[in-house]
Design a protein around this nucleic acid. Structure first.
Lengths: 225, 225
DNA sequence: CACGGCTTTATTGTCAACAATACAGAAACC
DNA sequence: GGTTTCTGTATTGTTGACAATAAAGCCGTG
């Protein structure tokens, strides 16, 4: 082959039917592929700058190039991937710090807005879903599995946005949070004990359960910074 | 044909090579199509809820369906179009007021951030580009051409974002402003004299020319609300 | 006449082949 | 030797054809 700088770890190129994890009814293939790739990029399993060749991905997911193209385009919009016409797509480099300084407060505004607008509709089922996520997060912390931890951290916050059931909100949030993926890895590694990440989210859900809106907004807001 | 509720005005379905206006070198077809459609939706020439059939658009722009699909996907991501799998795409309904209340302040933060980060690099060429845009805006005001006015208003603000030369910034801004297209139409119509929209932007550029950052940020910020 | 299931049809989702492009290496030239 | 041009190859851009899906119309039945 030709000498490329970034190669994708061997265990990742194994062919996998895209049923992995998601692919709900009505979900179109490209969405499932995008979900997979998004997680792998956000979690850091795909290094920054890694090339994403359509044909490789098509073979890996066992689909045609069209589906892969759509998935990649989606990720380009989210800012996780950069694509130059005729030159292919690569994992986007981390956004400059200046952007992160802009985006963190924006993200805080969006998430607390979402929380406010769904807080009084929260049901026991919602708390239980968070409990399950927290369990996963706990085991990721214990194993110091930082990629998985980043994935779960983001999944937690996304679930709040999704709970607000305003598609616009989700789109805005995704655009923001994609620019912060580096932020997640760094902040997790700053903790002397990863398990503290778990405890922090555990506390947030506990506050949610109390039903006190202001306290909940506070707890969430502090976690975001 | 089959009786559909929303039909696209006859004069709009005429076949047009996508060269119209844009299609810079290196620009891929789907981008040009997206630009065209975006303008037509933002300006309100496509009514809310109007169906966007791939095959119609493909014929209209004289390209294959794939290019149209990509353009539509782009617009879906921006929130101008909603698409249900297997059911096609339609012009998205206006975002609920609650979202607008969230987004306006966010937009203000983003735009003033962009202005700050490019302000001291502004050259005479930039001002002249704005002068040309202002001329267009003036004639749109005089003709009370509200769709065109909305287009130009947005183009003005986008030019500020683009001038900051941070792709992430543009992506974030687009996601926000697409949710506000209704806002533009309403606010323009609120003016007793449309020409005042022109004067307001004229004043902004004038302040930019003075080189006083704080005053410029102020002027821009007040225009956004 | 209302209603549930079948068929038809328009439309999207997917694919595989072809065209256009960019990049790398070889060859020719100064 | 260094530079330019050319050529080949890998990759994306685009297309048209086919499969899958959902919605509308049709038809028989109660």
């Amino acid at each position: 082959m030709h000498g490329i700088v970034f190669t994708i770890p061997e265990h990742l190129v194994t062919k996998q039917r895209i049923v992995s994890g998601c692919l709900e009814f009505g979900m179109v293939r490209s969405e499932a592929i995008a979900d997979n790739l998004r997680n792998e990029i956000i979690s850091g399993r795909f290094p920054e700058g890694a090339p994403l060749r359509e044909i490789n991905l098509a073979r890996r997911f066992d689909v045609g190039r069209a589906s892969v193209r759509e998935a990649l385009q989606q990720l380009v919009h989210e800012g996780l991937v950069v694509a130059k016409p005729n030159c292919g797509a690569r994992v986007a480099p981390a956004a400059p710090d200046s952007i992160a300084e802009l985006v963190v407060p924006l993200r805080k505004v969006v998430e607390t807005f979402a929380l406010r607008s769904c807080f009084h509709d929260l049901r026991e089922a919602d708390f239980e879903a968070w409990d399950r996520l927290l369990d996963d997060m706990r085991s990721a912390c214990l194993k110091s599995d930082y990629p998985r931890l980043a994935e779960l951290d983001i999944a937690f916050h996304r679930s709040i946005i999704q709970r607000a059931k305003q598609p616009d909100l989700l789109a805005i949030w995704m655009t923001l949070v994609s620019r912060l993926r580096q932020h997640f890895h760094n902040s997790h590694r700053e903790y002397d004990e990863p398990i503290k990440v778990y405890y922090e989210h555990l506390a947030i859900v506990a506050v949610f359960r109390t039903g006190k809106l202001d306290a909940a907004v506070d707890a969430l807001g502090r976690n975001i910074e």
